[in-house]
Design a protein around this nucleic acid. Structure first.
Lengths: 197, 197
DNA sequence: GTCTATAATCCGATAGAC
DNA sequence: GTCTATCGGATTATAGAC
C-alpha cells in the first residue's frame, strides 16, 4: 500500500466527517491532497471503491471496540463491557457510527459488499452470544436470546440515533448518564426476578 | 394555491419516495409533470423551498396519526393508541418516517425551519404527557416521566430504524409481531409491580 | 404562467503525454 | 504514477419572448 493511498483514505474520511457525502468529491479530495484528480484513480478504481474503503475502515474500528469486551472474565462482565464499548464507539466515532448503523445506503453505496453484510450479521450474533451466556449464568431472565438481544440493541441504537440526530439539547456527559439510567430501566424488566432486592 | 402547485408537491413526494433525494431533481420533476423546469420556479422559490414543503407534508401526516390517539377514553388506552399509531405511521409511510426521524439533513435541508423543530419538541411532549397520565392512573410505575418517555421512544425508534435500514431479513407482518413482543419485554420493567399477575 | 434557450457550476471518468 | 486536457453528463437557476 503506497503512502498516497493511505493519505487518500484518511483525507476522504475527514472530508466525509466534515461535509458528508455531498462534500466528498474526487475533485475536492484531490485539491486537498495537492494532487491532480486523476491520481486518485491509480489507487481506487472509482468513487464507489473509495466509499467502500471508508465503510471498511469504520467497521474495522468498530470491531476493535466491540471484541475487546471478550477480555471480561465473567458473562456479565463481558456483557457490560460490550454495552460500554458500543456506547463509546458511538460517541467517540459518531460519524463512523452513522456510516455503519444509520443508513449506509445514503452514503451512495447502492449495495454493500458481501463481506460487510457478513460482518454485520456476525456483530449481532456477538450480542446474541453475550445474552445467551448471561442467561445461562443466571444474570438475565431466561427468554429467547435472539429477541432479547434485539430489544437491547434497539434500545441502545434508538437512544444513540436520536442523540446523534441532535434531537436532544444535551451534551455528551449528560447523555452518558441518561443512557445509563435508561438502560437500567430496561434491565429491570430483563433481569432474573430472583435477583431483585 | 394553484392546482399545479399541489401537483408538484404530490409528484415531488412520490419521486422522493421512489428514488430518494438523488432522484428528486427539478428537471426530472418537470418532465414527469409534463411542464418545463422553469414552471416549477413560479410555485417554489427554489429546490430547498420544495424540500421544506415535503418535510412539512410528512409532519402533517405524522400529526394526523399521532393525535388521533387522544380519542382514547382512558390514559392507558391513549398510551396504547399512540404507540400503535407511531408504528403504523412508520410502516405505512416509511419514507416520511425517515424524513422526520432518520436524519432530515440527508434530505439536503441544511437547517430545518424553526417551525418543524417546535413541532418535534411538541411531539415528544405529547409522549411525556401520555406517560405522565399513565403514572397518575397507576398503570405505569411512578418515575420521571421525561426519562421513561425517552426510554420508550428510543426502544420504538431503534426497532423501526433497524428494520427500515433493512438490517433484519424479515417482512412487515413478522416485524409487527416482533415489535409487540419487544415492547412487552420493555413494559415488564415499566409496569407497576402491583399490576403483575 | 408557461415556454425556449442558456448561463454557470459541478460531477465522475478517460486518453495520452511524460 | 502523475500530469494536462477533455469528454459527457448532471444539476440549479435565470433571462426574455409569448
Amino acid at each position: 500500500m503506497s503512502d498516497l493511498k493511505e493519505r487518500i483514505l484518511q483525507c476522504a474520511v475527514d472530508l466525509y466527517l466534515d461535509q458528508g457525502l455531498k462534500g466528498l468529491s474526487m475533485r475536492h479530495l484531490a485539491e486537498m491532497l495537492d494532487v491532480s484528480a486523476t491520481a486518485l484513480y491509480r489507487h481506487y478504481r472509482n468513487k464507489e471503491d473509495l466509499v467502500h474503503s471508508i465503510i471498511g475502515e469504520a467497521a474495522k474500528v468498530f470491531g476493535n471496540y466491540l471484541f475487546a469486551a471478550l477480555a471480561g472474565k465473567t458473562a456479565k462482565e463481558r456483557f457490560d463491557l460490550a454495552a460500554t464499548a458500543y456506547l463509546n464507539f458511538a460517541l467517540e466515532h459518531s460519524k463512523y457510527y452513522e456510516v455503519i448503523f444509520m443508513g449506509p445506503q445514503q452514503l451512495g453505496a447502492e449495495c454493500l459488499p458481501e463481506e460487510l453484510q457478513d460482518k454485520s450479521r456476525a456483530t449481532f450474533q456477538f450480542l446474541v452470544d453475550r445474552v445467551q451466556e448471561c442467561m445461562e449464568a443466571g444474570c438475565l431472565r431466561k427468554d429467547e436470546p435472539f429477541g432479547v438481544a434485539m430489544t437491547i440493541w434497539a434500545h441502545s441504537h434508538g437512544l444513540i440515533a436520536i442523540f446523534l440526530a441532535g434531537k436532544w439539547p444535551i451534551e455528551e456527559p449528560n447523555f452518558r448518564i441518561l443512557f445509563g439510567e435508561s438502560q437500567k430501566r430496561l434491565m429491570h424488566g430483563l433481569e432474573d426476578p430472583k435477583l431483585r432486592s
